[in-house]
Design a protein around this nucleic acid. Sequence first.
DNA 1: AGCGAGATATTCT
DNA 2: GAATATCTCGCTA
Length: 209
Amino acid sequence: MDRLFRREELALDPVDLARLLLGAVLEADTPDGLVGVRLVEVEAYRGLDDPASHCYRGKTPRNAVMWGPAGHLYVYFVYGMHFCANVVGTEDGQPGAVLLRAGEVVEGADIVRKRRPNARGNGELAKGPAILTSVLGLAREQNGADLTDPESPVRLLVGERVPADNVRSGPRVGVAMAMDTPWRFWIDGSPAVSTYRRGGKRRQVRPAG
DNA sequence: AGCGAGATATTCT
DNA sequence: GAATATCTCGCTA
């Protein structure tokens, strides 16, 4: 059952890829050992037709990987201190990717617990995109890594099939635009699923008078 | 559970 | 210079 995804299986529209990735296992060789995470929450980001996507305004050095072949890892830096990881989808030059928002640690839980002493239960070990990314030891060096290559330090494994009834969807977290687009998908009932937060200006300090 | 604030760098205007 | 696909802490319920 534990086999890697093949590239052609991942060359999908990001929305379809997002549902496929639920239940899949992302596995990484960290300095402390092997860590594996079963994905329970993801978000689809498309290209030129998606205002919330990094690719909306065209190709830049940062988002270049999103335009490349499917099955590669897109890691970006946000808010000055965090990394987030995506799986690149689509084919023939169409940009798109799936943000990995949360997962359940299924391998190397001891390692993760040491690095995250604040986490209460197992459900909180990889709850949130930046946490998930740091738990797997992913950073700038892993940007563009091939998840379908057995030799890669980061790999994507086929997981148990998730029944369609267990999958829920809603608007993407922290996104101000396209709030009517339910491109966040999660496995209902998982304790690792992060709580929804609206996008836009959080601090509306308007000068009085 | 939910808000408010602060920390910090890269990117685009 | 402003915005950002965030996290943690402290406080209020």
